[in-house]
Design a protein around this nucleic acid. Structure first.
Lengths: 202, 202
DNA sequence: GTCTATACTTGGATAGAC
DNA sequence: GTCTATCCAAGTATAGAC
């Protein structure tokens, strides 16, 4: 972990090329050969540095997941009301859909459905996201007196599932209008419910 | 379409074997060889009867989709209140998760992410489901005065996305508790909102 | 319509020179 | 650490006998 500042190592370049390939060509298109082609390095390097393609895929998932999760954490921490939280989360997610960051997560989840050895590893990497959403919704739900009818953990699972589903359909259709309609509805609902959630500090 | 009553044609057997394979081995495990092995027929028959594997996959998707959609339609038509509708839909979906029927849909959607030629075809087959959900939620939303904040079409897209996401996570985790928690919350929410949706006839 | 045999392709992974 | 060359497995699809 001393390489922090220095220029990119080969290992880094491989991870980045893997992410690019996942975004551009999808999970099934992300073969060792395709990654090497895109990154402009030799295919054998992947196996030298990561052992197997699965391990590279997981390393890439880790990297993008950490990166994005901390962006979401920062944005929600800065938001001062439920409305603002919904607004920032929407903004971030919209960017992710367009730029393909969270997309990588969806591709990996969808893809790992069919690889028994990858599935459990990918699932484990969802937990931080569910935890994060849970933390974010606990207080608002409590204030609105909804925790008993909709426990924060369940709500978090719901949000993550929905996010995942929207992402998949987005990629199949490449039709922004449906997702946009969802974002707009989320904003209206947040504004409608704002009083119930209480507005004093958070 | 005259074969309605007679015993199964080979084509039928192939479609059924394809569905079985999708359920048992997932999308990536559903190769022509695997289907033939499971169905106990020769691999070449698939190509004789369907031309390509993609066409067989779509035929299988059509069959299960029609079958299940009509089951949902019938169940919801029989239900007499919003609570009952939520209860029947939950019951059906729970069965689907366990038996793997709607699962096939999820597998196909996730899998077709990576096959450019399959994606659009699969998407087209989602529309009847979105239409169905839209019809189902329109009246309750109208009555509750929520249609302007959450249009029926958007709500339908949301429900379908959520369903899809839950299905994917279910398959990765094989952990019923999370999905069950969601079902229970749905029931509580339905009961809570029942008065707002009006109780006279439907 | 159904079978065997096989052509062809792609992809993961490794050996071994440098 | 990086390269070339290659092995091997699995898959789609087709040819051609029956």
């Amino acid at each position: 972990m001393i390489e922090a500042v220095a220029e990119q190592t080969t290992k880094d370049r491989i991870v980045e090329a893997c992410l690019e390939t996942l975004k551009e060509e999808g999970f099934a298109g992300t073969s060792a050969r395709a990654i090497a082609r895109r990154g402009g390095f030799n295919q054998a390097l992947i196996f030298y540095h990561f052992g197997t393609l699965n391990d590279l895929l997981l390393a890439a998932l880790d990297r993008t997941s950490e990166r994005r999760l901390s962006a979401y954490r920062a944005a929600l921490a800065a938001a001062e009301s439920v409305e603002e939280k919904v607004a920032s989360a929407t903004r971030l997610y919209r960017d992710d859909l367009a730029s393909g960051h969270v997309t990588v997560v969806s591709e990996m989840i969808a893809g790992s459905l069919s690889r028994p050895d990858l599935g459990p590893e990918v699932v484990a990497r969802m937990d931080p996201w569910i935890d994060f959403v849970e933390e974010s919704v606990r207080e608002p739900l409590d204030r609105a007196g909804l925790s008993s009818v909709l426990p924060p953990r369940t709500a978090a699972f719901m949000v993550v599932s929905l996010t995942l589903g929207v992402n998949l359909l987005w990629h199949l259709e490449r039709d922004q209008t449906k997702a946009e309609a969802l974002f707009e509805a989320a904003g209206r609902i947040a504004r409608m419910l704002a009083p119930a959630f209480g507005g004093s500090d958070g």
